[in-house]
Simulated scan of single mutants.
Amino acid sequence: MRKPTDECLLCRINAATKTNSHILPRFISTGFLGAKGTPRKGFLLNGKNELSVKPKTVQDSPKEDYILCDECEAYFSLLETASAPSLKFWQAKVMKGELKIVPIHPHLKLVHLNSPDPLIIRLLVYSMFWRADISSLESFEDYKLDPDLAESLRSNLLEFKALTNADLQAHMKAKQVTIHPYATMTAGAFKDETKNVLAAINPGNPASLLVDKFGFYIFKAEKDIAGNFMADFTNVKVSDNQIMVVSEQIWYDVMVKRPLEMAAEQAKKNLANPK
């Protein structure tokens, strides 16, 4: 159990006094709990005891105390505030003609975001994977990235740390980021938005995170995307800022149904072979 006197896990200088730090940005990780202003409710599945114990209910996405200092929390908030409009409202922007959606084949389209600066969203994605890796919460206890990747994400995030937008913009002009290719996926529509999930299942290469309406994948290096089905749709260059848009059925079958099946399969194994 961490304490407020422990050092911040990002900067490793200040005391980690911040409480209720979201591991996954709140603006994209709570929609499945219900509409804003209504009683929100979700279920915590751990793949351990769902068949013997009633799942815990939750009203917010995972939060943890004493992992960050106030400065590093504020820095992540800058990234989230800048990224929120494009990620949350890309469909509205397409309808207004502000963004183009390009058909690749019947079940896949591609959207190129025009804001914010692609580096900001890259840093946001880096922060999500890093936060999932360092979290000690039950949802992330078995989610550990390759140590070299985790440290690279931390050092890159720290390199661009800023407390104001002006400072962030200055860092972005003066500094270079280490490229870890990443891909973003979503669906074109959701008949029932409360059926989505949060899941940190695969910390491999690529590592993946399922965050409500978005799936994120990150590779250690550009050479690792060779042969992957997402190779042509991965954000490799610093200027890349694209999202894969799949059909609602593919989203449900691959991104929602499969994680739930995996949790059930693991629960069956644990019930049959209790420790």
Rank of each mutant, 00 (worst) to 15 (best):
K41Y: 11
F43A: 04
G34D: 02
L24C: 09
F32D: 04
D60W: 11
L33H: 00
V53P: 06
I23R: 13
S52G: 10
F32L: 08
K56P: 02
S52W: 01
T19L: 12
I28G: 09
I23K: 12
K41I: 10
K36Y: 13
K18M: 14
P39W: 01
R26F: 10
G31C: 05
Y66W: 06
L51I: 12
L51G: 09
G47E: 03
P55V: 05
E64W: 00
T38W: 07
P62N: 09
L44G: 00
S21K: 11
K41Q: 14
N49E: 03
T19Q: 15
A35V: 09
D60I: 07
S52H: 06
F32H: 15
P39R: 01
K48C: 15
L44I: 07
S52Q: 12
K56W: 00
S61A: 12
R26A: 15
T17C: 02
Q59E: 13
N20K: 15
P62R: 05
P39S: 02
K56Y: 07
K18T: 13
N49D: 00
T17Y: 02
T57Q: 10
P55Y: 05
L45W: 01
N46A: 06
L24Y: 01
D65F: 00
P25Y: 06
T17A: 02
G42W: 00
E50P: 09
G34M: 04
I23P: 02
E64Y: 02
G47P: 01
F43S: 09
S29L: 10
P25R: 14
N49P: 01
E64Q: 10
K48L: 14
